[in-house]
């Protein structure tokens, strides 16, 4: 198991040395949210705020997906990871956790602040946070699959978004539904179910995609 944490630690060490990557994700998140505010006008946002925050968070998380496997693919580290005694599925999980810590959590921290800026209705803050706490790991898991599939492809960035965003529609729908207390606990339960489903399927599929990309 220590090897699992050795991989997470390396990813975090690299992540912290590239602090600019994390700040770029946060800046983008804030920027997109405020663009909506200017576009729609802050007063009219009201119950739109949940949707705006979720969409902006989704796009921000997309930005940082290429640093999951692209560096390893370029410097040849991916072959070594495939040949390492650590099962590839666990390597993927370690990288997803590291990505979530360096992209998902910052978004989770910034979301409530942006919520105030967008006059998010008082009652929906807890729903927003629980929703995003479940939603951001799903984004990292699905994002890992997308990033692995496009390794070595032309226009990999655009392609990752094209592959992943449709799969994320249900997460967005239930995530926004979770911000409205009137919907009760159902949306959060659905998000939790999707997280378990993504945990079961994505590492296996991502590992298969990585093995194919190394050939």
């Amino acid at each position: 198991m220590t090897r699992f944490f050795v991989i997470i630690l390396r990813e975090l060490r690299i992540g912290l040395r590239h602090l600019s990557d994390i700040s770029a994700v946060l800046a983008f998140f804030a920027l997109v949210a405020t663009l909506f505010a200017f576009g729609v006008g802050p007063l009219a946002l009201g119950d739109l705020a949940g949707g705006v925050l979720w969409t902006a968070a989704l796009l921000a998380a997309m930005l940082s997906l290429d640093r999951l496997f692209q560096p390893d693919h370029d410097d040849g580290g991916l072959v070594l990871l495939v040949l390492s005694p650590v099962p590839l599925e666990l390597v993927v999980l370690a990288k997803v956790i590291a990505h979530w810590l360096t992209a998902g959590v910052p978004i989770l921290v910034l979301a409530p602040l942006l919520g105030f800026a967008l006059q998010l209705p008082e009652g929906s803050l807890s729903g927003l946070l629980t929703g995003m706490a479940l939603g951001t790991p799903i984004l990292s898991l699905l994002g890992a699959l997308g990033a692995a599939l496009v390794l070595g492809a032309r226009r990999a960035g655009v392609l990752t978004a094209l592959l992943i965003l449709p799969l994320v529609i249900p997460v967005l729908i239930f995530g926004v539904a979770a911000t409205d207390p009137a919907n009760g606990a159902a949306p959060v339960l659905f998000l939790a179910a999707m997280l378990l489903g993504a945990l079961a399927l994505c590492p296996w599929a991502t590992a298969a995609a990585l093995r194919q990309s190394v050939l």
């Binding site: 009760g184 606990a185 339960l189 659905f190 179910a193 489903g197 945990l199 079961a200 399927l201």
Partner: peptide, 21 residues
């Protein structure tokens, strides 16, 4: 085994959610 366990958990949560509303 772990995969099936997770999927069973997911299905369980969906069923609970369906009852709820």
């Amino acid at each position: 085994g772990v995969g099936l366990l997770l999927l069973a958990g997911a299905a369980g949560l969906v069923l609970v959610a369906l009852e709820d509303t």
